[in-house]
């Protein structure tokens, strides 16, 4: 009876989680990309006599990968299995909705989660935007400070 509402809420929940996970996923993929490229280039150097068709192809692929713009990397939430199991076995969402048992509270709770995730994400985005220095490493900060007075940090 409340099936459309359930679906809509579930979809909203998944979407909120996806968006929430995105920044950390981008960082993780970036790290993996860097590690893979180093590894493959090292392997190339190790045995220089062989032809490196396979390695070259892989290298090409990793270099082309751009985690920020590649949407295919963010199609699924990281831990969908346990979320589904919780909704089905612990909360018994479907069953309760079918029986009409405190339905409103469950929907409200789902909405709370969605709004929490969205607001938390937006809050962090804003804080980062207004405080761009927060995310820099110490080395980067020193370098930029030196740059302000026209100096370069020796490498």
């Amino acid at each position: 009876m409340d099936r459309p509402r359930t679906l809509r809420t579930y979809r909203g929940l998944i979407r909120a989680i996806l968006k929430y996970e995105r920044p950390s996923k981008i960082v993780n993929w970036g790290n993996l990309r860097k590690a893979m490229i180093t590894k493959l280039e090292y392997a190339k150097k190790q045995n220089q006599r062989d032809s490196h068709e396979n390695i070259n192809r892989q290298l090409e692929k990793w270099k082309k990968l751009d985690p920020v713009s590649d949407r295919s990397l963010n199609l699924f939430i990281a831990d969908s299995k346990s979320l589904r199991s919780i909704l089905q076995n612990d909360i018994k969402w479907e069953k309760k909705v079918a029986q009409g048992q405190n339905v409103d509270e469950i929907f409200e709770h789902a909405l709370d989660i969605i709004k929490f995730l969205d607001n938390q994400r937006e809050y962090e985005e804003l804080v980062d935007r207004y405080n761009p220095g927060n995310k820099l490493t110490q080395d980067e900060k020193v370098k930029r400070t030196a740059n302000v007075v026209g100096l370069d940090v020796p490498t």
Binding site: I17, E21, P23, V27
Partner: peptide, 14 residues
């Protein structure tokens, strides 16, 4: 689950 999501979505430095 949400606690886990919160921790797994952190990235260093930020």
């Amino acid at each position: 689950y949400l606690l886990k999501l919160e921790w797994s979505s952190l990235s260093s430095l930020s």
